[in-house]
């Protein structure tokens, strides 16, 4: 039984696309068949973060409008065989996302993949609503910061009211993923703490991803962080998160990169 997951947040720049790539790659590495879909029509990014930007011929909108078949538009990842990406169109806008068109594609993808991961655009307009519309589960991305938390709260409200599941009287399963968590700032109390975030959003936590240079490096390389630096702190956090997504019970910890004296010395001499 395949699962449709939406990665959403309301606010921009909190790490939706990075998370989509990292979680997609981590799931695919376990042998599961995964497709990641970019819903940010007009501002496509996922292809860059996945490193497949030079192989996009047909996109999501081409398939919706019947100009290409789904198999023509799906791009297979070169590193992991079970991972595919469906890119967004850069030249159209979000009005091209029709409910019937999206439903048809998602139904078709369900036959081919175990996990369909929808990367939502920021905001609460058509793109974001279409990305979540057919979701079974949602991963709500939040930074430890008040505006991000309020926007996530709004998104949870929309998940509970406008999605296909909500209209049928069912509930989209929701998970909270806190990203860009700066351990040193948390220690100084400069950041909204995890308990406060959970108190406001009151949905279960699926992971805390520490802020890391590895993430920036991975994005620039066009490789999901879970592939480029699988032993780094954020990769370990993402790997734990996908285990929880698959139903494993793992205690939530905030992984850190061990920095010994030699690391410091090496870094200085680099």
């Amino acid at each position: 039984m395949s699962k449709v997951i939406v990665i959403t947040s309301g606010k921009g720049g909190v790490g939706k696309t990075t998370t989509t790539a990292a979680i997609g790659a981590a799931l695919a590495k376990t042998g599961q068949k995964v497709v990641v879909i970019d819903f940010d029509v007009g501002l496509r990014n996922l292809d860059l973060v996945m490193g497949s930007e030079r192989r996009v011929v047909f996109d999501f909108i081409n398939v919706i409008q019947g100009e290409a078949s789904l198999s023509q538009a799906l791009i297979k990842d070169k590193r992991i065989e079970t991972l595919s990406i469906l890119a967004a169109s850069q030249t159209r806008d979000k009005d091209a996302l029709t409910e019937d068109g999206v439903k048809k594609i998602i139904d078709e993808l369900k036959e081919k993949f175990d996990w369909i991961i929808c990367d939502s655009p920021a905001g609460i307009e058509r793109g974001a609503k279409m990305a979540m519309h057919f979701a079974d589960e949602a991963i709500v991305i939040t930074n430890p910061e008040v505006s991000s938390v309020r926007d996530s709260d709004r998104i949870i409200g929309i998940l509970d009211s406008t999605t296909e599941k909500a209209q049928k009287g069912e509930k989209v399963i929701k998970h909270l993923l806190i990203t860009r968590y700066a351990t040193n700032r948390a220690a100084h109390g400069d950041m909204l703490n995890t308990d406060d975030i959970l108190d406001i959003l009151s949905i279960p936590l699926i992971g805390i991803i520490p802020e890391s240079d590895e993430i920036l490096r991975a994005s620039n390389l066009g490789t999901p962080v879970t592939l480029s630096a699988p032993d780094s702190a954020p990769s370990r956090a993402y790997t734990d998160a996908i285990k929880r997504l698959q139903g494993e019970k793992i205690e939530i910890t905030i992984p850190t990169d061990k920095k010994g004296f030699f690391d410091w010395l090496l870094k200085r001499n680099r």
């Binding site: 609460i124 309020r150 926007d151 709260d153 709004r154 949870i156 409200g157 929309i158 509970d160 009211s161 108190d199 406001i200 009151s202």
Partner: peptide, 23 residues
Amino acid sequence: RSGQTIFFPEGDVIITNSVASGA
């Protein structure tokens, strides 16, 4: 949640949970 509105002019509203900023 933030952005939600509850409108009940007939009487009292009782919420056994929290009301978010922006609701």
